[in-house]
Amino acid sequence: MKRIKGMGNLLRYLICIACVAVILLPIGILIHGSFQGGGIKNYVDILTKYHIETYFINSLIISVSVVVLVVVLDVLAGFALSKLNFPFKNGIYIFLLSALLLPAAAILVPVFQINSKLGILNTYLAVLGPYVVLIAPFNLLTIKNGFDALPNTVLEAALIDGCGIVKTLFKIAVPMCKPSIVMAVIWTFLSSWNEYMMAFVMLRKEEIMTITVIPTKFQSMYGGNVGKLYAALFIILVPGIIIYLLMQKFIVNGLNAGAVKE
């Protein structure tokens, strides 16, 4: 019996190792390719010769702005849809979630035309709106599930003690729903940081480009210089990897929030 159990544990470990290997293989290929040609000089050139800090700053400004907009909107909407009663609540919720079915490519041309007529192409505003529309629905689902898990009795007690709706939301509900909100912050930041299509189409001036557009620029500059191209790709991945490794506990807790309800 112990032998069978030991074999089962060994099989699980082997499956886990195989899954990790499949996930890490592309990153390993990327790192290996980044040293082709110039070795570590590829990274030095990317970091020192091409003003990559400008692209990092652009991506950071856009990502932080999107995080603030998405989280504020989803916290307000999630609380209202979870704890307040008003007409057509379920219909509004389903309508908002329907944006999950909307691919970025489907709205690319209309958004470009709207931005062109508004005169905001090659500005941060050109991508802020589309990012919020595309990212907010998933986080609304996450945050609402977190609010659904909060006992109504706690919120009712706060209201009886004299707290208004707004104070109850920010003093009681938001702190108790922290895992879901932190999950929304992480997911929004990573999604906006890694987005390529909208940024490539809407931000054509070099001084406003985001970090994800840089490999395309380098590819046209270097042609077959795989080393510099791969080095640029890996540099783009580093912030996302660091954030995920540091915040993976919050990601798991946020995804689990709402699994048990009152």
Rank of each mutant, 00 (worst) to 15 (best):
T123M: 02
L84D: 10
G119F: 11
L108Q: 13
F95D: 01
V70F: 04
K117D: 14
A80W: 09
I114Q: 10
V70L: 13
L108I: 12
F88A: 12
F86K: 06
K89G: 12
F79H: 01
V71F: 14
N90A: 13
V111H: 06
L84G: 08
P87N: 03
P110V: 08
L118K: 00
N90Q: 15
K83G: 09
V75H: 05
Y93M: 00
I114S: 02
F79L: 00
N85F: 02
V111C: 05
A77I: 04
L108A: 09
L102A: 08
P110H: 12
L84E: 11
I92P: 05
L96V: 13
G91R: 12
P103Y: 04
F86L: 02
L73I: 12
S116C: 11
A77L: 13
L100C: 09
L76R: 14
I120D: 01
G91M: 12
P103N: 07
S98D: 11
N115Y: 09
A77G: 05
I114V: 09
L96Q: 10
L102Y: 05
N122A: 05
L73A: 15
F112N: 01
K83I: 11
V75R: 05
L97A: 08
I120M: 00
L96I: 13
Y93F: 01
V72M: 13
V75Q: 03
L108T: 14
L73P: 09
G78Y: 01
L76K: 14
F88M: 09
L118W: 05
P110I: 07
A99W: 15
F88V: 10
Q113P: 00
V68I: 07
N90L: 12
A104Q: 11
L100V: 06
L69H: 07
I120H: 00
V109Y: 15
V111T: 13
A104I: 12
A77W: 03
A80I: 05
S116Y: 15
V75K: 01
V71A: 09
P103A: 04
L121M: 07
G91N: 15
Q113N: 05
L101D: 10
L97S: 08
Q113T: 03
L96P: 12
I107Q: 02
F86R: 06
L69K: 07
L102G: 07
N90C: 12
L108S: 12
L97E: 08
A80L: 03
L81A: 02
D74P: 13
I92L: 14
V111K: 06
Y124M: 03
L108P: 08
L108W: 14
P87F: 06
L69D: 06
G91S: 15
F88C: 07
A105R: 09
V70T: 11
I114G: 03
I114M: 08
L121N: 01
P87W: 04
V109L: 15
G78A: 01
A104K: 10
S116G: 14
L81E: 01
N85A: 03
Y93I: 00
L121C: 03
N122Q: 07
L81Y: 03
L81H: 02
S98Y: 03
L76F: 15
L100M: 14
Y93K: 00
Y93W: 00
L108R: 14
L84K: 12
I114A: 04
I107G: 02
V71D: 03
N115H: 11
A104P: 06
P103D: 08
L84N: 09
L118G: 00
F86G: 04
V71N: 02
